[in-house]
Amino acid sequence: MNDVHIPLHALKGRGVSHRQPHRFERDQRAAFDDGWGTLDEQRAEGEEAVAPATQVTFEEARSAITTNDSPDIGFRLGLNPYRGCEHGCVYCYARPTHSYLNLSPGLDFETKIVAKRNIAELLRRELLAPRYQPDLLVVGTVTDAYQPVERELRLTRAVLEVLSAAQHPVGMVTKGSGVERDLDLLAPMGQAGLAAVYVTVTTLDAKLARVLEPRAAAPHRRLRTIRTLAEAGVPTGVSVSPQIPFLNDDMERVLEAAWEAGARRAFYQVLRLPWELSPMFRQWLDLHYPDRAERVMARVQDLRGGKDYDADFATRMKGQGIWADLIRQRFVKTCDRLGFNREREPLDTSRFRPAALRGQGDLF
């Protein structure tokens, strides 16, 4: 498959500039100069190229709830209405999952979205299973449940309707302001101890956010979402993830702004570059920040024991070494100063009433 490149100024909101070959492909091809000037001609024609449009396909999923036993993840159950994410965040650790679909973790991940059209009905059936034990269910663990296609497809909305009816606890992490649309469900659940929402604010630098997370809500818009959720009574937090050395160095300012907006919980992770994400991120750095690309990657490797990435459960979320410790100290001291994470009651599983789902018809 071809490694297709698009000129920087033609990206128009896309996170990466090429179709990164995935790790299961046998052949990788790249353009080269054959001496006849054809490569220059192709590049010249590419100057007028339009960035690929989003394509949505549908699948009949086999299951709704996923489980994990990773010791560094604070929840056991997850749910994702979509595969791929149009937000196009260049750092997204989930990009390599598109390889299992024989799609590129690069442009395909953010332009070829798979929607699980039967996700709500599957969830209803799984909650009704006799052996099901309620636990915190986190929606949007791999891709954002409030990415732009949710406005039309409303799959996340359908999932929340099932969880609300069953009084099942739910947590969400999102960059999408679309979560405000579902306040009629989230507000009463939050007030009953059944819902919490974390909004990711990676940086307050709008210029950086525009190229780092091109189709996600702007930083100031995410802060407004935090305020809206908090004022509605939804327990609200902020994720200042990922921390990328020499790029988003305004963690303290983000936490202060989130606190002012009403967030009372916070967490962070450092940049993770598994599989194909490492060469993609390196290319993105060369494209957008060539003056500091080497410094950024040198510090990333300091966090990973000299490698671009280390999947060890003990260090993959926070890194290791002196720089990891400095990031941790900055986060902890700022949270202590502001008051984050002082009251963090677990969501309530005792209210779970699966019988309320019996006889519920088609949700669509």
Rank of each mutant, 00 (worst) to 15 (best):
M1W: 11
D3N: 15
A10I: 01
G13R: 09
G15L: 07
P21C: 14
H22Y: 14
E25Y: 12
R26G: 14
Q28S: 15
G35K: 11
L39I: 04
A44L: 15
A44M: 12
G46L: 12
E59H: 07
S63R: 15
A64T: 03
T66P: 00
S70M: 04
S70R: 00
P71H: 00
R76C: 02
Y82R: 01
A94E: 06
A120E: 02
E121T: 12
R124P: 08
R125D: 15
Q133N: 07
L137G: 06
G140C: 09
T141M: 06
Y146G: 02
V149T: 08
A158M: 03
E161M: 11
V170N: 01
K175Y: 08
R181Q: 13
L183A: 05
A187R: 07
G190D: 01
A196I: 00
A196R: 02
A206R: 14
A209W: 12
R210Q: 15
L212I: 10
P219W: 13
R227E: 15
L229R: 04
V234P: 01
T236C: 04
Q243M: 10
L247R: 06
N248P: 10
R265M: 13
E276I: 09
S278G: 11
P279D: 02
D286T: 04
A293S: 14
E294Q: 15
E294W: 09
M297A: 08
R299H: 13
K318D: 00
K318T: 05
R328D: 08
F331V: 03
V332W: 02
T334Y: 09
C335L: 07
R342T: 11
P346M: 10
F352I: 09
P354L: 14
Q360D: 07
L363Y: 02
L363Q: 04
